[in-house]
Design a protein around this nucleic acid. Structure first.
Lengths: 193, 193
DNA sequence: GGACTGACAGATGTTGAAATCTGTCAGCTG
DNA sequence: CAGCTGACAGATTTCAACATCTGTCAGTCC
């Protein structure tokens, strides 16, 4: 009303609407109603509903994983840093899955649609892994011929602990054990002998 | 008609019906019709539709993975044997996903339902992994404190390449690379130094 | 009397008409 | 004239009547 209608304003309202109705029920009309404008105005800022969902998810992912980049950039020994980073990723994902289920469900929808936002998100995470692996090689903690390929392998091997498709398993009591066991295996697999 | 109605006969007809209609559409009435009996007769041999589906899937899984146990029992060096076994599992799963999609979909349904059949199937596979890991420890190729935990870690780390939830990824060109990279990482992680 | 049928109740699925939604755009409004 | 509205076409979703399915069981038929 008094405020100008900004993309930012639309995004945070959409987040609220998604949280209330979930990705299956939330409509652009709902968002417009919550903003007190016509839905045509929303289309002035976002070309499609999909673009809107993606923008919300992108923001949400950035916020959720803000701390990860710091861990990746730290100067701690690479093996410890890798374990901390994988742990932080797992904890962050699980916290979101349990504490913010509707937005997590939105994220899950995008993941199953091969959205660009998810591809970028994954590329970002694998890039951070590559940084840690490269540091480990430099410090002689790790040994590998192809850093990028190895970073991808680490990401694949820990898929169960960050891919939203597996979220239902994250409440089982054995996951913690499984996570630690996979971490041990992966870190040993990287180690220089 | 001339034949007596046996559980075996019902199972193979159900397999045909599932292949034709898929798990979502196939009904007990369809199976009975294909057998030329009333659906009440089917319930004489299987208590519920779910039990029937599970029995079919169990047979199908046994047949699909018949060769795996032989590999696990072989006397080749444990690292090679592990790689062969993981490769055989991946190939077998992928072949089924592409060549027998409706029964694979049935398997996928059971997997998402936490069915006992799937739990046993997994326990069987992890048992075979444990055999290979234990042999590797005996022959000094591998080193681990807890064989069972390690076998589970190997199974988790390669989840992307056998869990039906990931079947859509198995046709992407990069999977082969990813599979090899994860195998390398896992086998290095097991190796004694 | 053991194997099978078919009618049945309640649950689940299908269908098509009505309601709502997405995305566009000509026109209003300040 | 930049920002917004609201009517619109076509796509999608909802809803309720209807059909089919699951699982049971009294009764039929060798």
């Amino acid at each position: 009303m008094a405020e100008a209608l900004t993309a930012e304003h639309i995004l945070s309202t959409t987040e609220d609407v998604l949280r209330r109705y979930g990705p299956a029920k939330a409509t652009v009309v709902d968002v417009a109603r919550a903003l007190g404008v016509s839905h045509g105005s929303v289309y002035r800022h976002f070309p499609t509903k999909a673009a809107l969902r993606e923008a919300v998810t992108e923001r949400w992912l950035d916020q959720a994983h803000a701390g990860l980049a710091d861990i990746a950039e730290a100067t701690t020994p690479a093996p410890d840093r890798l374990r901390d980073w994988l742990r932080a990723l797992f904890d962050s994902k699980r916290r979101k899955a349990l504490g913010d289920p509707e937005l997590f469900a939105t994220f899950d929808v995008l993941a199953k649609e091969n959205s660009d936002v998810i591809a970028e998100h994954i590329a970002d995470l694998v890039g951070q892994l590559a940084k840690i692996v490269a540091d480990g090689v430099k410090s002689k903690h790790f040994k590998t011929k192809d850093v990028q390929r190895t970073a991808l392998a680490v990401f694949s091997a820990t898929d169960r602990f960050h891919n939203p498709a597996h979220a239902r398993e994250w409440t089982e009591p054995d996951v913690e054990d499984a996570f630690d066991a996979v971490c041990d295996l992966v870190i040993r697999g990287l180690a220089a002998r």
